[in-house]
Write a protein that binds this DNA or RNA. Structure first.
Lengths: 218, 218
DNA sequence: GTCTATAAAAGGATAGAC
DNA sequence: GTCTATCCTTTTATAGAC
């Protein structure tokens, strides 16, 4: 136990670098995090970091990939349990709130170094998009199960967008007020109202007195 | 007209620097924006920039102050016009959506360089907070007028938080998908539902069958 | 795989002529 | 107020011994 197998030494170092870099980058952003900061924080020299990742950009890609994997592993499967809508919604909101509270890194990585737009490498851009797409897909699947929207994907998409934008906005707020949590109460009210809004629009075609404001699904 | 008064030359240069720096910083973030980038973009040498602002931090403070002033000037006064709630709400949402679309800089500045937390100067931190507080105060006042909540500040505060978090989250989304606009339709539904939720909670104290999930105002 | 040492470039900031 | 030229630090990245 004390003498680790030689072949694992590299892997352990690699993990340590990713952990350290992730913490620093989510705190200061990509540009403001230097190799020397990572080096002095995790103990390994700069050249070892370059041996593992090749470039600063490579570190970022690895960090983001790690954050995505960890977050998706923490999220429950899309089949939300519960007998009725309210139970499933509560389970969904609890899962989101829990992941939001326990994984503050992911969103800050996407934001703080998300300057990744013009000058970033293709690999970094691709990894950012992969992260974002995975979150959208999960939220859409889960909300589709919660509200039984398998035949109305556009509604599920709107609810997912709404939820994720609220989560992103709360992540920004947490940036300034560290204690901030995701307020699931108002979000719950809003999601139920949105679903009811689309539901009534489908069953009761709008008359001249109450014109619909938006197109419903399909 | 062709020969500007000598005393205005400095002011015009100062404005040019602030404009250029604002564009660059909102695009790449504070750390990734260098003095030489600003210099080559606006034509003035680095030493002139330092003569005007003293330090890179000073530029950031000026940029953020400018963004805040411009955004608040674009927002309508808190007394939202309209005879009934729905009219005032529509006017409010139109104003928010318009400001959101026409002033993409502000939010990105708060986010992209908002790494302003640990290592930033006191002046920069203060300016960031001033910006944020001004937005919160405006939204709270406006929503208080829209829904007539002058005697229930806690509800107005919740609605303002909700609105601003949706706007922040949408700003993040726009980061990745440049065409993204603030969806006022779902936000409208959500705000009306939230207000109705609090309204009913006040008038009809919850019975044992329908326990309240959160504390209402006061 | 890890270390010491260093190259090569870019960064923030200043001096001093004009 | 603006310019040229420069100082000093830090940065990314690499060479080569072990």
């Amino acid at each position: 136990m004390t003498e680790a197998p030689a072949q694992d030494r590299g892997a352990r170092s690699r993990d340590a670098i990713v952990d350290t870099a992730g913490a620093l980058m989510s705190r200061y952003g990509y540009a403001a995090t230097s190799i020397s900061m990572i080096s002095s924080e995790c103990g390994l020299p700069a050249s070892s970091i370059y041996w593992h990742f090749g470039s600063k950009d490579g570190i970022y890609v690895a960090v983001l990939e790690h954050a995505r994997t960890a977050l998706l592993a923490a999220l429950p499967p899309a089949e939300v349990p519960g007998a009725d809508v309210e139970q499933r919604l509560d389970a969904f909101l609890a899962a989101v709130e829990d992941a939001f509270r326990r994984h503050p890194h992911g969103m800050k990585l996407l934001l703080g170094l998300g300057l990744v737009q013009q000058d970033a490498s293709a690999a970094a851009v691709a990894e950012v998009r992969r992260y974002r797409d995975a979150l959208v897909a999960w939220a859409q699947d889960a909300l589709s199960t919660v509200f039984g929207l398998s035949d109305r994907p556009r509604v599920a998409e709107e609810l997912a967008r709404f939820t994720l934008r609220m989560a992103s906005g709360t992540a920004v707020a947490r940036w300034f007020e560290p204690g901030t949590v995701l307020e699931t109460g108002p979000l719950r009210v809003a999601l139920l109202a949105l679903q009811a809004h689309h539901d009534s629009a489908v069953r009761v075609p709008p008359g001249p007195g109450a014109p619909a404001r938006d197109g419903t699904d399909k």
